[in-house]
Nucleic acid binder design. Sequence first.
DNA 1: CATCCTTGTATTGTCAACAATAATCAGTTA
DNA 2: TAACTGATTATTGTTGACAATACAAGGATG
Lengths: 246, 246
Amino acid sequence: MDAEPLLSVASPPLTPAVKRSLADDVVDRLRDAILHGSFKPGEALREEQLATMLDVSRGPVREALVQLEREGLVVVRRHRGATVARLSRGDLEEVYSLRLALERLAMLRAARYATDEDFAAMEAVMAAFDVALSRGPSEKEIAELDLRFHDLIYRAARHQRMYDCWSNLRSQIYIFLLLRNVANPDFRDVTIKAHADLLEALRARDEVLVATLIEEHLRGAYDRILESYTATEHASSGEAPSPTLI
Amino acid sequence: MDAEPLLSVASPPLTPAVKRSLADDVVDRLRDAILHGSFKPGEALREEQLATMLDVSRGPVREALVQLEREGLVVVRRHRGATVARLSRGDLEEVYSLRLALERLAMLRAARYATDEDFAAMEAVMAAFDVALSRGPSEKEIAELDLRFHDLIYRAARHQRMYDCWSNLRSQIYIFLLLRNVANPDFRDVTIKAHADLLEALRARDEVLVATLIEEHLRGAYDRILESYTATEHASSGEAPSPTLI
DNA sequence: CATCCTTGTATTGTCAACAATAATCAGTTA
DNA sequence: TAACTGATTATTGTTGACAATACAAGGATG
């Protein structure tokens, strides 16, 4: 249900040694496969085939597909099986308008509840961002660090239900970020600057500024991704509307 | 996944004749049982027992429990089974702060996208509200009509992902509404007036007013429920914080 | 020639049996 | 007596087989 960060920043001394179910493993492996492009959008995901590939039975695979549908990576239709989701411009608009509503609340709460440990973790991710930049980072690295920074904001907000909503958007946003990176190479400085500003406003616990900054940041991100979309024109079918956010 | 309204207002001429799975039926029957109080908060929900009671195998029951966990009605712990969720004041605060963030967006979008059919459906629910009031309605009736009005707003917003988030909150809100009704008998006029104002602002497509009204409406609702909570003091364990929204 | 119906097949939906696990409760030991 | 240890048991996790369904292909019919 809850993807573990790849490089743990400020990890606690002992982890509670949680045992995961087969379905959880399948979720992670399938998610990675989809995000890595091993399965293309629209491709059929047959339960039996996946069970054979992953060396489990169909039960855990079925559960995993339900979870991945919640995360927006998979579409399941009754008696017709699952397919990898195609994310259209309409989906982009839905994801980012919802994200804006959620993340405004996240910022307000983080401004109220975040601890010094939270701020330190954010700074660590920003530092990792700098390090990555200095050695020619891959697009995946950039997208993951970007998401990790925002994930820390959601965690600092101390709101389980909101965090669950965010978890259901995260993978879709990852896909959109990769798309943005391909078309737009100079976004990185903008992102780094925006993150620095967000952290500064959070530290100042300035609720008005925090809300303003996240709105600007996300609207900017949305616009840049939308450019990539109209440039490459993924959904070739006539899908005209949805340029404006909200 | 998607609860059908009990009394369909402004129903379309032909329904697409969707065939439901056993798991979907189990979800509905279990949800109703929990909301009707057939299962008390904290009570264990054993898969085998439920399967026997509902005359299905454990498979569909398992799927249903996962869905109900997403709706916040059930807590599933690995190898320890499922229990009916206990909703604390902390949960109330989470649900209503998240609801406020979502519903502000819903109102903004509904103000932009709602059609005359949407408005007519809202008026029909308001009329049903009046009819119900005139003949001494049950608390369940009131809560259902209240939820149905807000559900129409979310539908009018034309935003599938947001609607899914709302669907995951709806049953929890229903529980809170029942709680409010018990302790506070004169809220009905307030609610009716607020709904009328919301509809009028939507018709005027006044985005500023719409956002202001929903915030007032939901903060008021939250405060009234919180009163009931502190009056009856459900979570008897020392849970001090969370009086303020956001 | 198009359309409808039948049949075959691949795939998901459901089930019941088996394996793994966590809680319970004696029994033992310090 | 209290704490630890080990078997017992109830319950979930997982599996493979069976049933139901939707799609596709082919033939019958107008």
